[in-house]
Nucleic acid binder design. Structure first.
Length: 241
DNA sequence: GCGACAG
DNA sequence: ATCTTGTCGC
């Protein structure tokens, strides 16, 4: 598969049988995570978001993903790629194992971009995860690309103190005496975001990069666009039935 | 045994 | 995540 993905070999993404095997994979891959690097000078990033049918919905289980290529210099979307893969063999949603459900569609969407991203923005946790390998870290390590996780809800860790209501403020997200991410108030009066480095990005740098992408809404603009694109594709598939 | 729990 | 219109509020 020729594609936009980084030079070098892209390993086959293995789907484990159950959570025990999945956790083993996570513990193995977490040691490859590099929590250092400055993405400030990178121009092209890909924002990723997914959409799934309800468990009780009889609409054919399609795992839908959108990859939005974003030019930081122009502050614009330059390309959109989507994918819909059969969700039959995928994991159900289980907290802590999101990557085994969503990464297959992400890989397909990324492969359809005509030019490679230098950084990945993923809807979910980076290293702020019980085993240190949230979906952003997993995908970053798999593709050997810098990545950052942006989650709308907490999965793991404890905010250090109270977060002021003022836009732009952040407090550290802690676990076992160490910082694993940030709780970030992107806009005044909205629920905070949970930011954590995925791979090859430093702790402070992950926050600053996200700060540079926030516009008038709660989510950083590239991720907001990816969310809209995934939702649109979901709608189209629904009415096609 | 009791909470917590990305999407 | 998904099913969904109008409506309350800054």
């Amino acid at each position: 598969m020729r594609g936009p993905l980084p030079p070098g070999e892209i390993p086959q993404f293995i789907l484990p049988r159950g959570t025990g095997e999945a956790a083993q994979i996570q513990r193995q891959l977490r040691d490859k995570v590099v929590l250092q690097g400055n993405p400030a000078g990178l121009r092209f990033l890909a924002a990723l978001d997914a959409s799934h049918p309800t468990r009780f919905s009889r609409q054919q289980g399609a795992s839908v993903a959108a990859a939005v290529l974003w030019d930081r210099e122009a502050a614009k979307v330059v390309e959109v790629a989507t994918a819909a893969v059969d969700a039959t063999g995928l994991f159900p949603y289980v907290p802590g194992f999101l990557s085994f459900r969503e990464i297959p569609a992400y890989l397909e969407a990324l492969a359809r971009l005509s030019s490679p991203p230098q950084l990945l923005l993923v809807d979910g946790q980076g290293v702020a995860h019980p085993r240190g390998l949230g979906i952003a870290s997993h995908l970053g390590v798999h593709l050997d690309l810098p990545s950052i996780g942006v989650a709308k809800r907490l999965l793991y860790g404890h905010p250090e103190g109270e977060l002021a209501e003022e836009a732009g403020r952040a407090v550290r997200l802690m676990a076992k005496g160490a910082q694993i991410g940030w709780v970030y108030r992107s806009r005044a009066g909205v629920r905070p975001l949970y930011i954590s480095p995925g791979h090859r990005v430093g702790m402070l740098e992950s926050l600053e990069l996200i700060r540079s992408l926030v516009g008038r809404t709660r989510l950083p603009e590239p991720l907001r666009q990816a969310h809209l694109e995934a939702g649109q594709l979901r709608r189209r598939l629904n009415e096609a039935v």
